[in-house]
Structures are given as structure tokens and as C-alpha cells.
Design a protein around this nucleic acid. Sequence first.
DNA 1: TAAGTTTTGTACCAATTGGTACATTAACAT
DNA 2: ATGTTAATGTACCAATTGGTACAAAACTTA
Lengths: 196, 196
Amino acid sequence: MRNTIGRPKSFDNDTVIDLAMQYFWEHGYDNSSLEDLLSAMSIKKSSFYANFKSKENLFSLALDLYRKNLFHIIRDTAKKYGVKKALFSLVDESLEDFKNTGTIKGCLLVNSANECYRKYTDLSSQINLEFKTFIEFLTQIIQKAKDKNEIKNHLDSKLIASRFLAYLTGLTLIMKAGADEKSISSVSDSINELLD
Amino acid sequence: MRNTIGRPKSFDNDTVIDLAMQYFWEHGYDNSSLEDLLSAMSIKKSSFYANFKSKENLFSLALDLYRKNLFHIIRDTAKKYGVKKALFSLVDESLEDFKNTGTIKGCLLVNSANECYRKYTDLSSQINLEFKTFIEFLTQIIQKAKDKNEIKNHLDSKLIASRFLAYLTGLTLIMKAGADEKSISSVSDSINELLD
DNA sequence: TAAGTTTTGTACCAATTGGTACATTAACAT
DNA sequence: ATGTTAATGTACCAATTGGTACAAAACTTA
């Protein structure tokens, strides 16, 4: 793949998609202007449209990357420290994020569903799919943990997964809205109990 | 107040604020363009800027109206059917809303926190305040219900309030993201248990 | 050096945004 | 009829949006 004719690519597509994904994650779709994205990706407009054909298409790629990364991280952590810790680390990450930056990004899949669903029809179907895939993924690893008796909650795995995601999302939002520490801890505790 | 000189007002400010509030509620702040708002309010641009001075100011008024209406409804329902039903009716309303329209508006206060916090600094402080007032309000009526032994949950009232709001918010979001009925019911059930 | 490919630079586009200025008209009280 | 206030109509504004067109420059292999 080395000896191609012409000027060689100076940036890796996947790398700049990752940079875009980070920016999208922090600012949302609408609040990420093309200008913002270009400087985040460190490429110029002409290169942008040559490599990714539109903002919407870039977002689609970013969404997919996000979900893949997320699964990878959860799987890795689950292998090392168990499913319970892997899932709760998502909560902890949010708490840490908030402590450090004073703000919170939440889950890009959920955020996108909230922002883009029904507004950007092309993205909507993908978002829906990614979300369902995420729930399924959670259901599977929770089921495995139940089989190993690592999680004792008698509730159906999928329902645990759904509650988990709902609570985590709710936690994120009340943090954004300015809930106090005790309230935050309480919701966080309830997520922990869910995974007991 | 009747015999004022000059042409009498042909629309009531509060009425059109209410119309604007409904529109904001359904579409969010950024997605409510001035044009949209004007036709929703059935007034013209010139009248708009004469009566409300900016979109941001209108939203501020709408937010306040929303919170007042919300408190009013909850208080009324609580008097008639008890606190538990009053709170759970918020959940039911979301479920109904979704069944009928296929979409869901959520809580304007929470939505606004999510959308506007840190982006519109002038609104941010108000949003923060409205949210805290809401939590306090919930805490109070929950405490009353606990005093009457209507709610038996031993958790601190404020923490019940916070969990309630977080769960409800999370429920709203996973509905938007396309969760299936069983998952939705399960989260809804857990909110019910919280208020037992 | 020439050919091929990538990246950049510059200029431009139509559409939309929230907002302003101001003249005109409509409805009332005196 | 006149003054006063409310509402409308029209025209305009600068800024931002995502996107296109195309020429010029940079870098490679052959």
C-alpha cells in the first residue's frame, strides 16, 4: 500500500473522525459548526468535502465510531474488573467529568437521540439502530454476569439494561440542571443497587 | 382599567406567552425560530418586539409560566387524588403523549437545562433557579405525603424527589431513543415503586 | 521532468437567523 | 375632528449557516 502515485495522504481519516467525534460529543450536532469541526480536525474545508461528503455523513461516521469505542471499553473493563464495575465506571466517569470540568457530556447516542431524532431523518434511523444495539449489548453482558451470579437482581436482563441506561441518563441531566451533591450521590447509589 | 386613551390592546400578553411556551416546549429554544413563534402567537414581528423585547426574554417569561402552571397542576391533582397519583400522573402523561403523538415533550425545565445551560448565560441562572425551585416543591409535597403515611419510602424526601425527577427524565429520553414497550413499562414501574 | 494525487486558498452561493427603523393604519376617548 | 396608543407592513441589516467551484501549490513515483 506504500507505493502509490501522487501526493500521499497527510492525515488518517479515522483519526480526524475521532477528533470530530470528540467535538460532536462535547457540543452536540447543531452546535458543532463546520468551522468548529474543521479546526478540531485540523483540515481545510476543501479536504473535508473531498473526504467526507457532508456534515451529516461525518456525524454518521462519528456515531458509529463512538459506539464501537464504547463497546470496546466496556468489554475491556468487564474482562479486567467484572461487569458490575464496567457498567458503574460509566457512572463514575460522568461524576469525575463533572468534578473536573464542571460540565458533563453524557452519552453521545442518547444525546443524539434527543437532539436529532425526527429532525434529521437520515440520521434518525441510524441513531435508532445504534441505540437498540447498545441496549442489546448491555443486555448480553448483564446476562453473562447474572449467569456467573455476579449480578443477583432477579429482573430480566434487558429490563436491568433499560433501567440502567434510563437512570444514568437521568443522572446526567439533573447534573446539568444543577442538582446538589447529595441528590447526585443518591441517584448514583440507586444505579449501584440496580446492579447488585 | 377600561377607559384608557388610544387603541385598546387586541391580544393578552399572557395568552400569547402561553402559546409561545407551548411552542418552545414542543420544539426547544433553538429550534423555535422567530418566524415560527410569531405564527404560533399570531402576532406580527413589530408587535412582538414592542411587547417582549427579544426571543431570549420571551423564553424567560415562558419558562416562568411553565413552572407556575406545573406547580398549579400538581397541587390540584394532589388535593384531589393524593400526592402519589399527582406525581405519577406526570409519568402517565408522558406515556399517553407518546402513545398519541409518537413523540414526547418531556419537562421544559429539564429540556432547557440540557439545551441552554452554559450556552445562554442569561438564561442559565434562571434555569438553574427554576430547577432548584422545582426540586424544592417536589420535596415539600413528598414530605407532606410521608407525614400522612401516604408514601412509606424511608429515603429522605429530597432524595426521593431527585430520584423521581432523574428517573422520569431518563424515561423520557429512552422513549425518544426508541426503547421498546417492556423497557418503558419497567422504568415506569420503578418510578411507581419509588413512590410507594 | 512529467504525470498523478492530495491539500490548500480564495471566492462565492443561497438560505436562515434575530433584530431594527419607520411609516401607515386601526381603534378608541375626548 | 384630534390626539393617543396599538398593531401592521415593508424594507432592511449583519452575521452565520452548510456547501460548491476551481485554480494553485505540495508531494510523490516513474
